[in-house]
């Protein structure tokens, strides 16, 4: 009997709250431990997502971010602390994640995501979480995931609002179906210009982690074909139906985008 139980007593205790759930149990926890999730952007969205995925026992978690921790991050990027100021975000994130769960593997990628590296970055991962803060990156990640046929969670936050949707290959629209192309730089406000309530990252980033976990477990309904919007001041969650766009440039019937594209960054957001 002992050989049939691949989990140590310590693991049974660590994941006990998962294993008791009929939707998880030992089979599901094994899936989580075998899964590989990539988080692009270790900031307002990526930070809480990373914390919960590490805690859940996702076996391999990639974290991609080019930046170092700065003071203004600490209001919402809860994976970094005051002692991490100046440290590479990927390393700061890795430290916290391994402190929560030393059993997992955290792969840091200290880099910007670009047309040159995005395909190899996402290769080998089962699910991707877009935690970036700019539209060129968001479209890049979308296109890469569509081209590589990988599921991913898209999200955005600003002021007291947030939203997210999930792309599942072959089952619903992609981000470009809904938002054809990036707006011109400075056409839409960024968090730096407009502000964002810190906990918004926690709400939406945790939902992103939840989508990843549900996908890996194969349980529950995902947000593929839906945009979930959250207005904190009105205290309103809404689910808006998203149709597939047959003329989508990357996932439609006659795609014109066959490789990743770099768009111009918003000038005032360049570091």
């Amino acid at each position: 009997m002992a050989s049939a139980m691949a989990f140590t007593n310590e693991q049974l205790e660590r994941y006990s709250r998962h294993i008791i759930l009929s939707e998880v149990s030992i089979k599901g926890q094994k899936k989580l431990l075998a899964a590989k999730v990539l988080i692009i952007g270790a900031g307002g969205l990526g930070a809480p997502a990373a914390l919960y995925l590490a805690a859940a026992g996702i076996g391999t978690i990639g974290v991609a971010d080019a930046d170092a921790v700065d003071l203004s991050n600490l209001q919402r990027q809860v994976i970094h602390t005051t002692q991490d100021l100046g440290k590479a975000k990927t390393l700061s994130a890795q430290e916290t994640m391994l402190a929560i769960n030393p059993e997992i593997t955290v792969k840091p990628y200290q880099t910007f995501v670009s047309a040159d590296n995005v395909m190899s970055l996402i290769d080998g991962y089962d699910f991707i979480i877009d935690g970036t803060d700019n539209f060129p990156a968001k479209f890049l990640i979308n296109d890469a995931c569509v081209l590589a046929q990988k599921p991913f969670s898209h999200a955005g936050i600003i002021r007291f609002k947030g939203q997210l949707m999930t792309y599942v290959p072959g089952s619903g629209p992609c981000y470009r179906c809904v938002f054809k192309e990036p707006p011109p730089p400075d056409a839409v406000p960024t968090c730096r210009q407009a502000g964002v309530i810190g906990a918004m990252g926690g709400v939406i980033g945790s939902l992103q982690a939840m989508e990843a976990i549900k996908y890996i477990l194969g349980k529950g309904d995902l947000l593929n074909g839906w945009l979930l919007t959250y207005d904190a001041l009105k205290m309103e969650f809404r689910k808006i139906k998203l149709p597939v766009n047959e003329s989508c440039a990357v996932c439609g019937k006659r795609p014109s985008i066959t490789r990743p594209l770099d768009y111009e960054q918003a000038v005032c957001d360049l570091k």
Partner: peptide, 11 residues
């Protein structure tokens, strides 16, 4: 009718 907005954020 639904209005869907660009929302960047995240960092």
């Amino acid at each position: 009718i639904e209005f869907l907005y660009f929302m960047g954020g995240g960092q």
